[in-house]
């Protein structure tokens, strides 16, 4: 029994981090219909910001989250201004954005590799290697802290979306872009800020990734499919869906890893992606496929 509890807790902690990693992706898709393939590499950029703050100044990775988030927010705003603002008018917008974000992913992959090499890195705060025992249940504190920190950030994001005026504007633009314009929302500005927030969330996730996984620039290719499966499972663009989906899939993956073999644990996400696309393409929590 304690074994099962432990698997569930570890699954939920990791699921929380995945939820944070995927939340920016789904937010950006919701508002702009951009499938941001560069999201995982920007998570790694956030991990590098955290890594150097830790290495050079001894800043705790969790405390470094706001710095990584703000740094990546700026990257997001610049990317949007440079690339996506002009594309918004294009008739081949969605095709173009997939290609463009893929190119951005390759550029950042190369840039980070050139700057920092492709050696494995990890930040090592004391809690990263610690563990606590509750009865027979063994919980690594690193994963626990990362999971809790993720859920706190996601909670703040949800409060922001639910209760602030700008949050209303973001939700309105996600649900009906033309209607949001007619209500007085400047959707161009909303897109810019949302893109910044989405990439900022990637940066914050990077801080947590820096001590629960070892990372290197090219690692982001592994994550693209995992994050996509989470976003599709949740129903493209639905934040609540992606959070629930991340938690559920991570717990399932943890069980698969414990009872079938850790190689199959990652496969859980890809199998889920196939099954969802075949059986329920709108995702677990999507109402229907919306024509963009």
């Amino acid at each position: 029994m304690s074994n099962v509890i432990q698997i569930v807790i570890l699954g939920l902690a990791l699921g929380g981090v995945y939820a944070l990693m995927a939340s920016g992706l789904t937010l950006i898709f919701g508002v702009m219909r951009i499938v941001n393939l560069a999201h995982p590499v920007l998570i790694i950029a956030g991990a590098f910001v955290t890594f150097w703050l830790f290495r050079l100044y001894g800043v705790d990775p969790i405390l470094a989250m706001p710095v990584a988030a703000i740094a990546l927010f700026c990257v997001g705003v610049i990317l949007y201004k440079l690339i996506f603002e002009k594309e918004a008018a294009s008739a081949k917008y969605s095709e173009m954005t997939v290609l463009l974000t893929f190119a951005v992913a390759m550029i950042f992959d190369g840039l980070l590799g050139w700057l920092f090499t492709n050696t494995q890195r990890v930040t090592t705060p004391s809690y990263a290697t610690d563990a606590i025992f509750i009865g027979d249940v063994f919980i690594p504190t690193g994963q626990l802290y990362a999971g809790v920190a993720s859920l706190v950030v996601i909670g703040l994001l949800l409060l922001f979306l639910q209760y602030t005026r700008f949050g209303y504007a973001i939700r309105a633009t996600t649900q009906n872009r033309a209607a949001a314009q007619l209500m007085g929302v400047n959707v161009g500005l909303v897109s810019l800020i949302t893109f910044g927030i989405g990439i900022g969330l990637a940066g914050a996730a990077g801080s947590l990734v820096s001590f629960i996984f070892s990372f290197f620039p090219a690692k982001h290719w592994e994550w693209i499919a995992i994050l996509m499966s989470l976003v599709v499972l949740g129903g493209m663009g639905k934040l609540g869906g992606v959070i629930a989906g991340s938690l559920i899939l991570s717990v399932i993956a943890a069980f698969v890893g414990a009872y079938i073999g850790s190689t199959w644990s990652t496969m859980t996400f890809f199998l889920a992606l196939f099954v969802i696309l075949l059986v329920r393409p709108q995702g677990l929590f999507g109402d229907k496929i919306e024509e963009a």
């Binding site: 649900q175 009906n176 007619l182 209500m183 109402d287």
Partner: peptide, 30 residues
Amino acid sequence: PDQILRKGICFVPQERALFPRMSVRENLRM
């Protein structure tokens, strides 16, 4: 469109421009 609304012209299109996943009160707030 948002600037034109602020001038004082409001448009209710055929599709009604509602936010389907928001409540009636939230729609009014928007």
